[in-house]
Simulated assay, not measured.
Amino acid sequence: MLSELIIEPCSKENVKKIVDGINEYNLHKVPALSDVWTPLEYVVKNKNGIEIAGLLSGINYWNGLEIKILWVKEGYRKKGVGTRILKYVEKIAKEKGATISMLDTFDFQAEGFYMKNDYLPIGEIKNFPSGHRRIFFSKKLNE
């Protein structure tokens, strides 16, 4: 039977089928508390309208804020821009019912930044990439 299987790249329809399938399974086990995915995606611009930072995230169906990417342009780092957009998104997420925030970063990216913003390390992968660590963080939003 396994020898008869074919593995091939996904089409958009395949991706939808996979997402729908895992959502159906998950929601059968634990009912949703909110919409399946509520995007929270924001950009920060300077006074000249130039994009200097952005945050891509969303609220999952169990009211968890998942931060995928937080970027601040070189020259604007360590000036409070990252904290400002992070706090902004956390506030909106809480207003929409999120109770926890989660993300991952690397030791060469923003480990210290997230710790300064009250995120707690909950796990890590050592030596990935080689000589570094990938760190997973969470933060309770209702405290």
Rank of each mutant, 00 (worst) to 15 (best):
K78M: 09
D107E: 09
N60K: 06
S138T: 10
K17Q: 11
Y42E: 08
S11Y: 12
I135D: 00
K79L: 10
L56T: 04
I92V: 07
H28I: 14
N63S: 05
G21K: 07
I69N: 12
F108M: 11
V15Q: 06
G49S: 12
L5A: 09
D118V: 04
D35N: 14
N46Y: 10
E41Q: 12
L40C: 04
G54F: 01
E143P: 04
V44E: 13
R133W: 00
K17L: 07
Y42I: 11
L40F: 09
H132G: 14
R84D: 12
N142M: 10
E66A: 06
I135L: 04
L65N: 00
W62Q: 04
D20K: 12
A110T: 01
E95Q: 11
K94E: 14
L70C: 08
K29G: 10
G112F: 00
N63H: 00
S101F: 05
Y119E: 02
K87N: 07
R133S: 01
L2D: 03
E95N: 15
W62H: 07
L27M: 09
L2F: 05
F108N: 15
D118S: 06
G131C: 02
I135S: 02
K68I: 05
V15E: 15
K29V: 12
K96L: 10
I67H: 01
M115N: 04
T105H: 00
V81K: 14
P129D: 12
I122E: 14
E90M: 08
V43T: 10
H28L: 13
K47F: 09
I100G: 04
K96V: 11
D35S: 15
Y61W: 13
F108C: 14
V72F: 00
K91S: 07
V44F: 08
A98S: 03
G75R: 03
N26S: 14
L33H: 13
Y76R: 06
P9A: 08
D35R: 15
G64L: 01
N48G: 15
A98W: 00
F137G: 00
W62R: 07
K79V: 08
I100S: 04
T38R: 09
K94L: 10
N26C: 14
Q109A: 05
G80Y: 07
K140P: 05
K29Y: 10
Y76N: 03
G64Q: 01
N127S: 10
G54K: 02
L103Q: 00
W71C: 04
L65M: 08
Y119H: 03
K78E: 09
W71S: 02
S101Y: 05
E51R: 11
W37A: 15
A53E: 02
L55K: 00
E124W: 02
K79R: 06
N127Y: 07
D118A: 10
V19I: 11
K140F: 05
D118L: 05
A98V: 00
E124Q: 02
G123I: 07
K45D: 08
I7F: 13
E66S: 07
G123D: 11
W62F: 07
K45C: 15
N26Q: 14
W71D: 04
K94G: 06
W37C: 12
G80T: 09
A32L: 09
Y76W: 09
G64N: 02
